[in-house]
């Protein structure tokens, strides 16, 4: 076993708030330059660009984990990852059905670009992704488990869209696989400030919306950069573990 550096929370140009420079090949190039071997792609409420980044990553030896950053009914952001693209696509359809279906006003929110693995624009998503779904966080947890996915409440230390900020503490029914902290806090500070995360593994992510934000964020001590190994590491099982990068930017 060895340490594989990862950044599990990266947006593409599909997220209206992300820069248009976040194309699949550019993300892979930036990840490679930083020494990352595993990245997670998590756009807001959609996975339209996941396949393209996976294809771009395959040619460069970067493992891409496909996910969606869902905004729940309670305005909480949760990262959801899936082993198979089928499950991810199914989940995406359920999220689309749970969105209010308002039009994206590009001038106000930004473009929602759909790209191919070479970074060419193949389309634009019309429905606005920056909105809360009608799914409660408890329902989300139950449904993602049914689809054999991973549940990670996003940036729990942030002042907005965070599980701890919005809901005060971790609901019993949620049973997350892990908790994500931002680059602004160390593991020690997080455990000190949020005692309710005791018993959960912690990952750190960049939540990159632009290329220069992609960074070495969390190490996975595993055999190989594969789904089962990553899952074991998040659950701190079989000698596998996750090790958040500790030079926090303050």
């Amino acid at each position: 076993m060895r340490l594989f550096w990862a950044d599990l929370h990266i947006h593409t140009a599909l997220s209206p708030c992300a820069e248009n420079e976040m194309t699949p090949p550019a993300i892979i190039k930036a990840a490679k330059a930083k020494g990352l071997e595993i990245i997670g792609i998590c756009d807001h409420n959609s996975a339209e660009n996941v396949m393209a980044v996976m294809e771009a990553g395959a040619t460069e030896g970067i493992t891409v984990i496909g996910g969606i950053e869902v905004q729940t009914l309670e305005d909480v952001h949760v990262l959801t990852f899936f082993r198979h693209v089928d499950a991810l696509t199914c989940w995406q359809e359920e999220i689309y059905a749970a969105l209010p279906g308002t039009w994206n006003d590009e001038a106000r929110f930004g473009e929602q670009l759909i790209l191919d693995s070479r970074g060419r624009i193949t389309g634009k998503l019309c429905i606005l992704l920056l909105a809360s779904t009608s799914m409660s966080i408890n329902y989300l947890g139950k449904r993602v488990r049914e689809l054999e996915g991973i549940v990670i409440p996003a940036h729990i230390d942030r002042p907005s869209f965070s599980l701890i900020r919005n809901l005060g503490f971790v609901p019993d029914a949620l049973r997350p696989d892990c908790m994500e902290i931002s680059r602004n806090i160390s593991v020690e500070q997080a455990r000190d400030r949020f005692p309710c995360v005791a018993g959960f593994s912690l990952v750190k992510s960049s939540d990159a919306h632009r290329l220069n934000e992609i960074s070495v964020s969390v190490g996975f001590w595993i055999e190989a950069p594969k789904w089962d190994e990553i899952l074991l590491a998040l659950r701190l099982s079989d000698g596998r573990y996750v090790k958040p990068e500790e030079t926090a930017v303050r």
Binding site: E74, N138, N166, P171, A173
Partner: peptide
């Protein structure tokens, strides 16, 4: 407007 179960505990 919050309706999550956690409102009861709070």
């Amino acid at each position: 407007v919050q309706t999550h179960q956690n409102i009861v505990a709070v």
